[in-house]
């Protein structure tokens, strides 16, 4: 079992988690004996071939699914805010709410009163650069703006941890790069425990403190890599030989798994 250790208590302790899905065509083992320890305030990226169960793992972390075997211990902060908030792809933004109501949704569900939740929402709308769009509906905005709504909605809950499922996956390359920078800025100013699922190695290395490489289905932890680049990360990080070497290293680890996952389907 690999452990990401530091002196601080873990935000998430995942011990021997396996997940079996029972379907019409039989049973599918999605996750097999996954163990992880995520440090509080850390930024963890999970990469792996499609169908490897990385989204399932995220959903188990957030309590949207239960593990068939094994346990997940979330370090519950002693507050009334939910322990984790999700960022989905932009499709998780409610089309019938304005930007303001969308960003305020999480806090609203947590029972925060109107005046206070709108203040929180305004604050976050400003921090993600959507000031002036409070009254707009999501489909009036671009994909990148919608995704920022989803991110602001999660940050606004005040939850100590954020679980992101390919949050930038639907964006074009340029928007994606800008959003990565913005996400980093927001995270650096408001350090939460972040777990981000992505299929982009570069994204994982740019954003994460730790990269968890998963195997093809059934998903196992194949390797855990501590990203050595200091923060704040320089803009030209991607051009450095260290970055290239690490990207190559991860790709080497992933290549066989991607091949295996393609043979599966």
């Amino acid at each position: 079992m690999a452990v990401i250790s530091s002196g601080i208590r873990p935000a998430f302790l995942v011990e021997g988690v396996s997940k079996m899905f029972a379907g019409r065509t039989g049973e599918v083992l999605a996750l097999d004996d996954v163990s992880l320890q995520l440090r509080e305030g850390s930024f963890t990226c999970i990469v792996g071939p499609s169908g490897c169960g990385k989204s399932t793992l995220l959903r188990i972390l957030g309590g949207l699914e239960t593990a068939t075997l094994g346990t997940v211990t979330a370090n519950l902060a002693a507050t009334d805010v939910p322990e984790s908030a999700f960022v989905f792809q932009e499709h998780g933004v409610f089309p019938w709410f304005t930007v303001l109501d969308n960003v305020a949704f999480g806090v609203r569900m947590a029972g925060v009163r109107k005046a206070r939740r709108e203040k929180i929402a305004h604050d976050w709308i400003g921090r993600i650069g959507l000031t002036g769009f409070e009254g707009a509906y999501p489909h009036q905005l671009s994909g990148g703006m919608r995704q920022r709504i989803a991110i602001a909605r999660a940050f606004a809950t005040g939850s100590p941890s954020l679980l992101m499922d390919e949050p930038l996956g639907a964006l074009d390359a340029q928007t994606r790069m800008l959003m990565q920078e913005q996400l980093l800025r927001v995270w650096e100013s408001d350090q939460k425990t972040v777990v981000l699922v992505t299929h982009q190695i570069e994204e994982a290395l740019l954003l994460g403190d730790v990269v968890v490489v998963m195997s093809a289905r059934p998903g196992r932890v194949k390797e855990i890599i501590t990203v050595p680049f200091p923060r704040p990360r320089p803009a030209d990080l991607e051009g450095t030989p260290e970055f290239a070497a690490l990207r190559q290293h991860i790709w080497n680890a992933l290549r066989d798994e991607v091949r295996a996952s393609m043979e599966f389907s």
Binding site: A85, F86, F88, Q89, G92, F94, F97, M109, A110
Partner: peptide, 25 residues
């Protein structure tokens, strides 16, 4: 959309609030 319902669930919209803020609209 299943993804909308998932987001609602993730933000703990249940019962009446799920109905009022998600299912009805």
């Amino acid at each position: 959309d299943e993804r909308i319902l998932e987001a609602a669930r993730a933000y703990r919209a249940t019962g009446w609030r799920l109905f009022r803020f998600v299912l009805l609209p």
